[in-house]
Design a protein around this nucleic acid. Structure first.
Lengths: 122, 122
DNA sequence: TGATGAACAGACTGTTCATCT
DNA sequence: AGATGAACAGTCTGTTCATCA
């Protein structure tokens, strides 16, 4: 994974958080960037979190560099003739392994937040 | 509060998180910086989070600038004659209000993490 | 050495700009 | 306008440096 750490000790980074969601979506079926972004924006809006397009692209690029995703330019034969970058899972094992890592970090973060709520409000 | 935001949409910032703990500790009794740091380090070690001294100082400075804490240089008459910066609550109402704000953000973050665990692992 | 604080540097992310269809 | 990507800029935080008792 190129020595990049997703966690620096405190809470999980947005990048890793998005990667997790991207993998889960793409596992179900291939998507392209802005499509995924719209889905994420809608999903998180109630929580006051609005991911930006560049961060989603960076997450997709990272996952591709790591060989977890593969990217294919596809000519959309719909109403418009336009190329989009469609992503699909390239390495299911790696994807699974990465998600497992993130899950561990999410669990840790949840415990940390719970602790803070308990320590400061009870 | 000088227009500074503690939350930028994703998860709570370390600074705000530490401020919360600092206020709770200082509410009980006045402390000085490194003393608080040691307490925090011990408390979070099991969670893989190791706060650094500069971040704690910055948090204390912020709270002082905002008028929530007051700082007093105290000559320690113990084994060593040395000055430490002891903090105490300057404005109980403001402290309470700030903690309330942070609590709301912590709750939001916890929901976001729960959602992520649910959306991606079930 | 313990304590405080500032300065510096790097990581992360939001905003803007550029390109192409 | 929709889609992608790069470049730039600002914020947050970790490391280092400086000072003082």
């Amino acid at each position: 994974m190129k020595g990049k750490r997703d966690s620096t000790g405190f809470l999980i980074k947005q990048r890793a958080f998005l990667k997790l969601y991207l993998l889960t979506s793409i596992e179900k079926e291939p998507w392209y960037g802005l499509q995924l972004l719209d889905e994420l924006k809608a999903s998180f809006k109630p929580y006051g979190f609005v991911p930006q397009h560049s961060e989603v692209y960076r997450a997709l690029h990272d996952l591709t560099e790591d060989g977890i995703l593969s990217r294919k330019k596809v000519k959309e034969n719909g109403s418009k003739y336009k190329e989009v970058a469609v992503y699909s899972i390239a390495d299911k094992e790696e994807a699974k392994a990465y998600k497992k890592l993130v899950k561990a970090d999410l669990d840790r973060c949840e415990q940390l937040l719970r602790k803070a709520l308990k320590d400061n409000f009870s």
